[in-house]
Simulated assay, not measured.
Amino acid sequence: MPQYVQGVVARAKGEPVRVETITVPDPGSGEAVVKVQSCGVCHTDLHYREGGINDDFPFLLGHEAAGIVEQVGPDVTDVAPGDFVILNWRAVCGRCRACRRGRPQYCFDTHNARQRMTLADGTELSPALGIGAFAEKTLVAAGQCTKVDAAASPSVAGLLGCGVMAGIGAAINTGGVGRGDSVAVIGCGGVGDAAVVGARLAGAARIIAVDIDDRKLRTARELGATHTVNSRTSEPVEAIRELTGGFGADVVIEAVGRPETYEQAFYARDLAGTVVLVGVPTPEMTLELPLLDVFGRGGSLKSSWYGDCLPSRDFPMLIDLHLQGRLDLDAFVSETIALDEVEDAFARMHKGDVLRSVVIL
């Protein structure tokens, strides 16, 4: 029988979101219904509300979530009712050319639930990143559910579903940060701070956090940055070079998603160093660099898809590190809120007042 639950819906571009009744169908083949326990408020949800992703309104927002599997459809074997899971937005297919090469983290044919959740009048909803977890329950593909240790608090576990994983993965998986490396992170929001944490976990010797907001720089230092640069008052490329013996950092992670900060990242790396773009640009942005500089500086220019993570591998590992006291996920939670407070949380996030607001259901 379909279930009727409360969820946060964005009906039109720029309109305030509101809590509405949504219909969650029984899971079909390869699908699961998850009782959501927590969901982080991510910038991507605000992008959806503002029409920055696409115009498939109305959207059921929320995607950084953890909860309990309540029902599974036919042919589901990896998770079962009662499992504590983190939701992900890149359920791998196992059949595409990336998966066949043993690189499922780059799967080119990821999928979501086939059925759609709807409003009470039957209008189909577009779930954010194929999840839609600002809701009491949501329907997802079973492959979007990753079972983890239930000893972890849902309020922090769900953060691995997007921003924290993207940042940690940008450092460890994409950037390949190693022991003794120097790392610069440009942009210290949730993803950038997670990149700082990832660099620390990987054993980087010098971690330079760059931002225009002293509040964010203080948080970055608390999370493991060894040095900070306010790029309003200091030229960031010169500052990073000065802090790395005049050479530049081994790995520079751009977590803003703007051409000017990407150019800073490009010139702030050492020869043969690595630039990782994990900040999300908008469609109209373009980049111009002298091709001779691209050739002459060598190294790697990489984009990080979801921290190049494989949820089945990375989520349980990071939860284990958290439970061992080696990864402080609680530090990312600025506040916990109710479902009807998401619109206010967007405003606080836009002002930079919070690292993460987390909806508790």
Rank of each mutant, 00 (worst) to 15 (best):
S300Y: 13
A255Q: 10
T226V: 01
R218F: 14
Q264P: 12
K216W: 05
S303I: 05
L287P: 07
V237H: 00
V252M: 00
Y267I: 08
R206V: 14
G299P: 04
A205L: 06
A184T: 05
S300P: 08
G307L: 02
V185C: 02
R218D: 15
M285N: 13
L289I: 04
R179P: 15
P281Y: 01
V275D: 00
V196Q: 10
L271M: 13
E238H: 13
F247I: 03
I186Y: 08
G246Y: 11
Y267L: 12
G298H: 07
Y267R: 12
A255W: 08
D250N: 09
T228L: 09
L287A: 08
L291H: 11
D211R: 03
V183Q: 03
G279M: 02
R221T: 15
T261F: 10
A202K: 05
E254N: 10
L217V: 06
V252G: 03
A265E: 11
S234D: 14
S300Q: 13
D270I: 13
I208Q: 10
V252E: 02
G299L: 01
P259W: 07
E284W: 12
G279P: 08
V237W: 00
G273F: 07
Q264F: 05
V256S: 09
V210H: 09
E235A: 03
G187Q: 01
V197G: 01
P281C: 07
V252L: 02
V275S: 00
S304L: 04
V278D: 05
Y262G: 01
E242G: 11
T286D: 13
A268E: 12
G273D: 03
I208C: 07
G203W: 04
T226N: 01
G245Y: 02
R269Q: 08
A204K: 08
L277H: 09
T219P: 06
G180K: 02
V196L: 03
T226I: 10
V251M: 06
R218E: 15
T274W: 01
E238V: 09
S303A: 15
G257H: 10
P259E: 02
A184Q: 06
V276R: 08
T228A: 15
I186E: 02
D270V: 12
P281W: 02
V196Y: 05
G224L: 01
Q264K: 03
L277Q: 15
R221W: 09
N230M: 00
L292T: 04
R297P: 01
T282Q: 14
A199W: 06
V191I: 13
L223C: 07
A249Y: 11
G307Q: 05
A272N: 14
V185H: 00
E284S: 12
R297M: 08
A205R: 05
G198C: 03
A272H: 00
D181T: 02
L291T: 10
A225D: 07
V256T: 12
V275W: 00
V210Q: 00
V191C: 07
Y306A: 12
R200C: 11
R218G: 15
S231V: 08
G298D: 03
T274A: 03
V256D: 01
L217E: 04
F295G: 06
E238N: 13
D213C: 14
M285A: 11
E284T: 13
R241L: 06
I186R: 07
L291A: 14
T282V: 11
E238R: 12
G296N: 08
A272S: 14
G192I: 11
L217T: 06
I253Q: 07
E254S: 01
A220F: 10
